[in-house]
Design a protein around this nucleic acid. Structure first.
Length: 563
DNA sequence: AGGCCAATACTG
DNA sequence: CAGTAT
DNA sequence: GCCT
């Protein structure tokens, strides 16, 4: 195995420190992968004192770093019966040593990590002393040296949860949703105010609209209706028609005019005629007035509830309002995300004033600076597009020249932890993982009324532009740019712009399929550009768009380019 | 008949 | 895998 | 719902 430096910066306290041939072989392997081994506390402490700075990654304060990267590895589990035996193997000095502040892991953590070529979460490998009372006997109790190699139950189910216990405690708290009773109470209290502030359109100036304007007006509403129904491609057709009408040379006066416009077929042409002649759109009105559409729209405002679930709740359980949910839908239908979506139903459906997002940014980036000023915390999303209000707050985390996922993830982990401790973070929409690069949460400033949706994303330096484009949006621009890339035989994703390698082109040809249909495998594609937004735009044949110019409503607003 | 305004992550 | 999210 |  080549030295991966997987354990760089890690200190292993080995108990007992075996000196068999096999053990020496393993020790050698660990060292080659960057770990530093210690048989006793004495040597460890001495070394720590001497090389303090080197042992500590720069993104942690010293104590934390030590606790995170120093682990006690149990080499022979049968020799360890209790804390006393552990201390004696490590020759804990009379002055004492806070052994319990370090994780005690089974040897399997090291071997599994090596095998998977990544640092696995500690949680699955925590060693516990055999309970004298035989009370909490864990299934994988006495695992001795001979069998560390085979069976990998944890590696199958691995990938969960994070690192050190304090963190997992925090994350556990963050991730556990409120109790149904509390959700219900808050929703019922909030539902009044939300209903009160439901704005509706002013039907009066419809008369002053030209034919085309009126058609666009109705079609865009219809697009929304179809989308709520889960008919995303019908919805798409309306949007495309709108785009085509905007580019049409003249007013639509009759059916033929309409049919002459691309993207308008028989059905939409009929709608046009109706709208021109009656100034109304019956199908839209019926749709909008149906309770089903109304209820489905309300339900889909719950984070975690989309077209399918809302339809089920409406038809199968007969839900007709938000409070209805608690009466009719069995609790088993609520995922943790939905519970949070319900709890924060009111909060999360409020627009966030730009000034408040600024305040969030300052708060979070201050906390980040205290952890390590070299990390950049940038606010992206609609805020970067300079919109007056935002739906959520998106934070981007990176560090100059840093492409090390572990470092990024450790920074993000610390950041999240601090933000939680400060009371800012209220919840998370999924549990934290070992490599925490993305985190979706709710955050609230102490002087503000609402909890907001807050997202964190840590990105490698070399992919920052690709990621930045993606998370700056808007979504329409993203999809447009990706289509553009596909049409050029390229591929745009959240890392950057890629071109296919020779053999992928050949393979696609052989199979007679389009390149864009080829499954994306890192090895098959070469990164063309991931660091410079402008270059990505230009490579796609677009002029660079300032973030504020990326609030496009449809494709026609991108100057001078058409598919 | 089947793609289209994408590509990818996470839950259950 | 389907559903929802980004 | 349009287009190929």
């Amino acid at each position: 195995m080549e030295p991966s430096q997987l354990f760089k910066g890690y200190n292993f306290l080995l108990v007992p420190f075996l000196r068999t041939k096999l053990a020496s072989f393993r020790h050698n392997l660990y060292t080659k992968n960057g770990a530093t081994l210690y048989p006793t506390i004495n040597q460890f402490a001495k070394q720590v004192k001497k090389f303090n700075s080197e042992l500590i990654p720069d993104y942690y304060d010293s104590e934390e770093a030590l606790h995170y990267t120093t682990i006690i590895v149990v080499e022979d589990e049968e020799k360890l019966t209790d804390m006393t035996s552990l201390s004696s193997y490590l020759k804990v000095p009379k002055s004492g040593f806070p052994l319990d502040e370090y994780k005690v892991l089974r040897l399997a953590w090291v071997t599994d990590s090596l095998e998977e070529k990544k640092l696995l979460p500690y949680s699955k490998y925590l060693f516990s002393f055999p309970e004298q009372k035989g009370k909490v006997k864990r299934e994988r109790e006495s695992e001795s040296l001979s069998d560390v190699k085979e069976e990998k139950e944890p590696s199958k189910k691995r990938k969960r949860k994070s690192v050190d216990e304090e963190h997992s405690l925090i994350f556990e708290k963050l991730a556990s949703p409120p109790k149904i009773e509390d959700i219900k109470k808050k929703v019922l209290a909030d539902s009044e105010s939300l209903r009160a502030s439901t704005p509706e359109s002013d039907e009066e100036d419809l008369k002053n609209m030209s034919n085309n304007e009126l058609i666009i007006h109705y079609f865009s509403q219809m697009a929304k209706e179809r989308k709520v129904e889960g008919l995303q491609f019908k919805s798409l057709s309306y949007l495309r028609a709108i785009n085509a009408i905007k580019n049409a040379p003249k007013e639509i006066e009759c059916r033929e005019d309409a049919l002459s416009i691309p993207k308008i077929g028989k059905s939409l042409a009929d709608h046009c005629v109706e709208i021109i002649e009656t100034r109304k759109f019956g199908q839209l009105k019926r749709q909008q007035e149906s309770t089903e559409a109304h209820v489905m729209k309300e339900l889909q405002k719950i984070h975690g509830v989309g077209a399918v679930i809302s339809e089920k709740w409406f038809n199968h359980y007969g839900v007709r309002s938000i409070p209805d949910i608690f009466e009719k839908v069995p609790e088993s239908e609520f995922t943790d995300a939905i519970k949070l979506g319900l709890y924060y139903y009111y909060d999360w459906n409020q627009k966030i004033p730009r000034e408040e997002v600024t305040a969030h940014s300052e708060f979070v980036s201050d906390v980040g600076k205290k952890i390590d000023p070299k990390f950049i915390v940038q606010t992206v999303g609609s805020y970067r597009r300079e919109t007056k209000t935002c739906g959520d707050v998106d934070f981007f985390i990176m560090k100059e020249d840093c492409n090390d996922e572990t470092k990024l993830s450790q920074f993000l982990t610390t950041l999240v932890k601090e933000l939680f401790k400060s009371g800012y973070l209220k919840c998370s929409l999924f549990p934290a993982h070992d490599q925490l690069l993305k985190f979706l949460t709710g955050g609230q400033l102490t002087d503000k009324k609402f909890c907001r949706r807050v997202d964190f994303l840590a990105v490698k330096w070399k992919y920052r532009a690709g990621a930045l484009i993606y998370f700056t949006g808007n979504d329409i621009l993203n999809r447009y740019m990706r289509t553009l890339a596909n049409n050029k035989g390229l591929r745009l994703n959240n890392e950057g712009l890629f071109k296919p390698k020779r053999r992928v082109i050949d393979e696609a040809n052989k199979m007679g399929i389009r390149l864009s249909k080829m499954h994306f495998k890192e090895d098959d594609w070469t990164l063309v550009e991931g660091e410079d937004e402008e270059k990505i735009f230009n490579l796609l044949g677009l002029r660079y768009l300032e973030p504020k110019d990326r609030n496009i409503g449809n494709l026609s607003e991108i100057g001078g380019f058409r598919l």
